[in-house]
Design a protein around this nucleic acid. Sequence first.
DNA 1: ATTGAGACCTGTCGGC
DNA 2: TGCCGACAGGTCTCAA
Length: 273
Amino acid sequence: MPELPEVEAVRLELDPCFTRSRIDDVEVRRPDLRDPFPRRFRARLVGQTVEVFRRRAKYLLATLTSEETLVMHLGMSGGFNVSLPGDRARDVDKHDHVIFTMSSGAVVVFNDPRRFGMMTLLTPRQLASHPVLSALGPEPLSDDFDAAALARACRGRNTPLKVALLDQGIVAGLGNIYASEALHVARLSPMRAAGSIATAAGEPREPAYRLTGAIKEVLTRAIARLASKRYRSAPFRVYDREGEPCPRRGCGGAIRRRTQGSRSTFYCPRCQR
DNA sequence: ATTGAGACCTGTCGGC
DNA sequence: TGCCGACAGGTCTCAA
């Protein structure tokens, strides 16, 4: 479920529950997710007010009055359920791992069957020097991310372009679905070398402009769809559509699937070069 | 230094 | 119905 657009939709949904609300209780129902919960996890959360709640790449960050930041990642199967006061209480699922009770009465439950998600608490200096967070590339929807930035990051790389798009240090937040989708919009082959979108000096070539535009477009549209609540997920152009006709008008190709970096890539060999 | 494969863990789906 | 393998939207680590 969660790439950048899905995580952004979660942030939007949780924001009214979290921002400027106090955490009255936290129930942690197992010792770990992908990693163990940090020491005194509950004690460091209870009584704290969430000052700022934001997203960075696929991470959710809740900064508390204590100045510590609660960092959350949904992994492959993580998600939140929100119950507002007056809602019928839901049964506890065996994969409900953390339950936040907020001062507003909202109950926010983190559920994650595969437990690839994570939750930790970082001090300001731990946050600033965090090996993963500080190595993240630009936010794709920010002005920091443009053809020049993408070309610079891809310069000289021989790795396939699709694999490069999954590298969170090049651009932060794309995952397996939207990488395939953006490449289709940009009409670029997932197999071409990442470095081929840049000159030897790291200046953008024409495909770099198309690709940055495509990434922004695909993510923006997905967020809009998810936020509208009328759709559970966005309709995909190529992802999981092996054998179907290419949706590009007049193309007539058939979508193929192949493995890159042990993940499935979907693309149209006819119009993606 | 990059890069690919495998590991982490559970659920679902298709085939027999 | 049951069993089995393949696969799933993310990272991390290890070996080449």
